[in-house]
Design a protein around this nucleic acid. Structure first.
Lengths: 197, 197
DNA sequence: TATCATGTTGACCGATGAGTCAGCAGTCAG
DNA sequence: CTGACTGCTGACTCATCGGTCAACATGATA
């Protein structure tokens, strides 16, 4: 059915670049076409419309990334180390796939209800994954046993979102790698002075 | 110079509602006019254009809110308690001024460079305020003295952003008040099991 | 060379909505 | 009552851009 998989992919890549650069609403289909090296009518042979481009980017590229994170983290045994790896990897990937991060955290936010709900499903899956790490850590005595794992997992996810968004908007003024280290230490030990210390 | 301060305010309130409901790009000036009970031409007597509405909402309403938070928190002496109050108040205000939160965290993100830089200035002011609390707490021995206050302040702010965004997008599935308690406890004590039982 | 199939092109169409402006309505002074 | 002034109105203009489609290019087959 697909006419030319390479061309399709070139269009998708161009769309990602233009959406990230100009924002979804300011992005012009003709601009995407120009960048992909096709006439703008061609885009409509591969995608239903402008929104379909956004949906396709999200579904095809984002899903892979989440699977990758899960697989990498699952290689590690200790829940504490899993969490350290998760934070580190997440910040690395955000920087490596900056345009994708931008799409997910900025452009997807005021998209249609339908697409938003797909995005929310994926986020919930991510949060449940973090929750699983926390539960195993509680069982194994690595984490406090009075934690609320769902709440803490959501907090961890939210702080990822918040930090990456800061970095996207502020640019080099915000050092994602430094923040990543801080998060792990805060998360594990807290910021309060030790009473016995 | 101002023709009718009440009418101006009504337009601004209507704009906030419509921007929050439909998103900036899908919002129609005529819809704002209808809600404010004026002809849409009238809006252009009070504001330069559509973007000026967004800028005015941000500058006039958001600034007040930040001042309010600062003032409330400064009433408290202990840095630890200041932080608790800050978290609590921030989550309360996000819920009370939901539309304003939506504007700040969702709509303002893909606005023009100029407006974004105003928003970033305000965020930096907020982060410096949190940083001040942390520094005093370190001096007074309430917080660990090996903290990186700038990094931790940014992390705290980022997690606010992340959590409120979650709440805005997921609706009642996410309980902001519950999260708020979890944040304080995690932040203070961390999630790691205490070595001494 | 004729014919068909497939894929591509870009001029064109139509809808949309931001922003304008000529004229209207209300008010007040003389 | 008249005229001047101020603020308001909404029909209109016009640029923009997503999406369509008739025409064209290419290549395979007979």
């Amino acid at each position: 059915m697909r006419k030319d998989e390479g061309k399709r992919r070139r269009i998708l890549d161009a769309a990602l670049k233009v959406f990230a650069r100009d924002g979804y609403y300011n992005a012009k289909v003709s601009e995407i076409a120009k960048l992909a090296g096709v006439a703008h009518g061609t885009i409509y042979l591969y995608f239903k419309n402008k929104e379909d481009l956004l949906i396709s980017i999200f579904k095809e590229l984002m899903g892979d990334l989440l699977e990758h994170v899960k697989a990498e983290v699952e290689k590690i045994d200790s829940p504490k180390e899993k969490l350290r790896k998760l934070i580190e990897l997440q910040m690395e990937l955000a920087q490596e796939y900056r345009e994708l991060s931008e799409l997910m955290l900025i452009e997807l936010r005021q998209s249609s209800k339908l697409l938003k709900s797909d995005a929310i499903d994926m986020i919930e899956e991510y949060i449940r994954f973090i929750e699983g790490i926390l539960r195993r850590g509680m069982e194994r005595g690595e984490f406090r046993e009075d934690l609320d794992p769902t709440a803490v997992a959501t907090i961890i996810y939210s702080s990822f979102e918040g930090m990456i968004t800061r970095w996207l908007l502020e640019g080099d003024a915000f050092d994602l790698n430094r923040a990543s280290k801080g998060v792990y230490s805060c998360l594990m030990e807290g910021i309060a002075a030790k009473r016995g210390g």
